[in-house]
Write a protein that binds this DNA or RNA. Structure first.
Lengths: 198, 198
DNA sequence: GTCTATATCGCGATAGAC
DNA sequence: GTCTATCGCGATATAGAC
């Protein structure tokens, strides 16, 4: 609970404003105003506006954007339980306040920033596909699920997670209840498992 | 092939620029410049910048954003063929140049525009859920697929379509090949059908 | 319906006093 | 490290001549 430095305050205010207005509209003026300092004082902590954004970008992919890779090889043998754990992790991240803000910034700026697009595919998509593919492959070998292409199966699995998260992000932006969507995560695991189990 | 009126040219140029830069950065200056007129001349056709955007918004949901609702009751009896047709339609829209631009504007501005968010849920999501639910329900009644909640099944089905389209939109923005993703549509139908057929 | 010229504003950023 | 003051720019928009 150490008090925030001015630089940390700036980053925090910038995160919030950018996640609500987008980078362009989140002006240095507004950021400084939210922190409670003048614009000129802000330049003692960051050389320019873009530096603040780059600092925030670090957080986006440093955060557990999706899931922590545990020991897949063991857990995959548990079949449906593995998927359930994976989704629980994903769900937690989806509802985490900080992650929500960062996810919104990702969506808001993904067309303005090529690096963001690339890292979306690498860190977000491919990483998840890799973990899931490995797990599904093991499940197939152990005859827990029907034989199929593990990559396709993984793609099908995470696409729904992304869509749920996307909708959650939209609804929460308007402070609309997300209880229905919250249960969609479990429905997804159940439905998906019914379709692949042997 | 009738020549475009100045107003149509403005709308076209604005669409392109907004889909690339976002509303805020697509300045009246740039729009007018692309059309080949001065900014002041533009105001003879639209009262202000927002009017142009509102005009474009009409197109977003007027366009076949998803699919045309045919006679579901008959077609649903065809089982997998129905899904295949549905996805083919979705795929066509995803790769249509005009629809691609409008979809990108939707994604770019969805957090800046509450109406856009609402219509996303209504016109885009709910409409598709409704059509699919009806079809899945009929398939269940006719014992073509396993019994389950039609709404959940529909949600699972379209979430993947959305994710594919999202990725296509990202890749095409960087002029990256989308042949892999293109086949993902068919893989989706095949995989999904395997999981629900009786 | 287009032009030139101009008004007004908010933006990012800097200089220099304290 | 913060302040006041200011600069230069690009934005939306308007007035009025042609």
């Amino acid at each position: 609970m150490s008090p925030l430095s001015t630089k940390e305050k700036i980053k925090l205010a910038a995160k919030k404003l950018i996640s609500e207005l987008g980078y362009k509209s989140a002006s240095v003026r507004k950021i400084a105003s939210d922190v409670g300092i003048r614009e000129s004082a802000l330049y003692n902590h960051y050389t320019n506006k873009e530096e603040i954004f780059l600092d925030i970008l670090q957080d986006i992919f440093a955060s557990p954007f999706s899931t922590s890779t545990q020991n897949v090889k063991e857990d995959a043998l548990k079949g449906k339980l593995f998927l359930h754990r994976f989704v629980t992790q994903y769900k937690l991240v989806s509802f985490d306040k900080e992650s929500e803000i960062l996810f919104r910034i990702l969506l808001l700026e993904i067309f303005s920033n090529k690096g963001l697009r690339e890292r979306f595919f690498e860190d977000f998509h491919n990483k998840n596909i890799k973990v899931l593919s490995e797990a599904f492959f093991i499940m197939m070998q152990n005859n827990l699920i029907r034989s199929s292409d593990p990559m396709t199966m993984s793609y099908e699995f995470i696409s729904t997670l992304f869509y749920i998260r996307f909708q959650i992000t939209l609804l929460r932006f308007d402070s609309i209840s997300t209880t229905n969507l919250s249960t969609q995560f479990e429905k997804h695991v159940d439905f998906f498992w019914e379709g692949i189990k042997v």
